[in-house]
Simulated scan of single mutants.
Amino acid sequence: MSDPVMTRIGEGVQLHHAQGRREDARDLFARIWDDIDGERGDPLHVSVLAHSMADVQDDVSEELVWDLRALAAADLLTDERLAEAGLPYTAAGLYPSLHLNLGECYRKLGDLGLAREHLEQARAGMGALGDDDYGRLIRTGLEELTEKLAG
C-alpha cells in the first residue's frame, strides 16, 4: 500500500535533486509539514520530511533546526514502522546519515567539538548499514567530513 505523505515527500526530493528546484521543494515540504501537523505527526513522516527539508535550507542555522527535528523523530521510529512503509532500512540504519548531517552543520557553524561528536556517533552506527549504494554514500560522506575536520 502506498503512503501518500511519503509519495509527496518523494516528489519534493525529486524537485530538489533531479530538477534543481530547491525553492519549489522547500515550499512543498512546508505545505506537507502543515498537513502532517508538524512535529506531532507520524514520526516516520516527521523524520523523513525534516531530513529532506534540511537539505533545501539556505541558512545553516535553519538546516540544523530541521536536522535536529529529524533526529528527534527518528528516536521514536521502530523497524516495524519502517517495514510497514516499505523502506529497506532498520531504524538503526537511519542514524549514521542523521548524525553525518548534524556533524556537517556543526562544522559549518564552527562548533568543531559537536561536529566531531556527531561524526563519532555516525561512525558508531555504520554497522547497521549494508554494502549498498546508500551505505557507500554515507561512508563517503563520513570520509569527507573526517577530512574537513582534520584540515
Rank of each mutant, 00 (worst) to 15 (best):
Y95N: 02
P96T: 09
L142P: 11
L82N: 05
G151C: 02
D24V: 00
D3M: 03
T146G: 12
L149I: 12
R81K: 10
L129E: 04
L137E: 07
R107A: 15
A92R: 11
L137N: 09
A72F: 03
L114G: 05
M6V: 00
D27N: 10
Y106N: 13
L15M: 06
G130I: 12
A72D: 10
D37T: 01
V60L: 02
D67N: 15
S97H: 11
N101R: 13
G38D: 08
P88F: 07
A74I: 04
V56M: 01
R139L: 03
L82M: 06
G103I: 02
R81F: 00
R26D: 14
E80R: 02
L112C: 03
L98R: 01
T78A: 13
L145M: 05
L145T: 12
I9K: 01
E143Y: 03
R136P: 00
L129Q: 11
R8A: 15
S52C: 15
L44R: 08
R26Y: 02
L114N: 14
Y89L: 13
M53Q: 13
V13G: 01
R139D: 12
G141T: 06
E147V: 05
L64I: 08
G93H: 04
A115M: 12
W33N: 08
R69H: 10
E143K: 08
L87C: 07
T90S: 15
I9S: 03
G103S: 09
H16G: 01
L102F: 10
A150F: 03
L137H: 11
A25H: 07
I9D: 03
L68V: 09
I138S: 07
P43Y: 06
H17T: 10
G125D: 09
D3W: 03
C105M: 01
A18N: 07
S2N: 12
R8K: 14
V5H: 04
M126F: 03
E144Y: 00
G41V: 08
D3C: 04
V65G: 02
V13A: 07
D131E: 13
D42W: 09
L112D: 10
D37S: 04
I9N: 05
Y95F: 15
A83K: 09
D35N: 10
G135I: 10
L71D: 08
R26G: 05
A73H: 12
T146K: 04
D34I: 04
R139P: 05
A54D: 04
G135R: 02
V56K: 00
